[in-house]
Amino acid sequence: MNASAQSSPAGVSVPAAKRINAISPGSNAVINVFFILYCCACLFPILLVLSASFSDENAIALHGYSLIPRVWSTAAYHYLAYDLHRIATGYGISIATTVIGSLAGMMMTALYAYPLSRADFAFRGFFSFFIFFTMIFGGGLVPWYLVYTNLFHLKDTMFALIVPGLLMNAFLVLTTRTFFQQTIHSSILESAQIDGAGEFRIFFRIVLPLSLPVMATIGLFYTLAYWNDWFNSLVFINKDSMVNLQYMMYRVMRNLQFLQANAQSSSSVGAEEIAKIPNETVRMAMCIVGMGPIVLAYPFFQRYFVAGLTVGAVKG
């Protein structure tokens, strides 16, 4: 909306007409109150988890989750600190797969989209259909799983977190192609060709530098897809040392013992000690630790995302 709001015809050029047509102050107030309430509903569960993670376990046990901690405590985070090594590993795997996957995905997307945008490319029809067909028909989970496990043996490797399903998104390829068609004028390419520049040189020296906005947008889409991915881990990862951040959150929700400190304490100490493990608050602290980066980065990336979504129609 941000980009389009500024370019809206009413925004700058004819403010008078807009003002006359504006809703009454009363309606405006009602609408504002409505959206404020809805925004509270959007944030409420997030604040609930945040509050629980800073609560005393006994207060939760007695009074349940509340918006403001009844008794403040950072015990849950101290508890997580025992597993700092494991959480750091999870972060490391998430960051590594996100960076590698997004860069590779952006590159492959641009390299596939660019020839499709060229009217003089002889195999344009075939390769357009080749990618388009994958958007309307798929083999389903089972053969896909068997290809990666039985043919390529990707189970429990970093490749399993980068390659299957996520590496290249057909929708983004077609968006990028449309962008190239609209912005890269064929006369630029022709004059480069006359100057004797090869195809790769033209692509890396002319096309890519002119396409930085769209590259940033698709990079953002890939980054989010990789960072939020838990499905590939669910399907391909059994080894505890290969667990990324999202999957670690999933495992902790299932069983708090996934965190080592808990597993150790429950084997070495008596039942009385186990009862003291702050189950609920540690879970919620884990959620905050896992969700933190996205929520903190959100204010900075969201408008680029909105701009990317409203970039225009995409056709096959």
Partner: peptide, 15 residues
């Protein structure tokens, strides 16, 4: 990209 589509999408279709 084409090889990736072949592996990720077309192999499973035949599968």
């Amino acid at each position: 990209g084409a090889i990736y589509l072949l592996i990720n999408n077309y192999f499973p279709m035949f599968g």
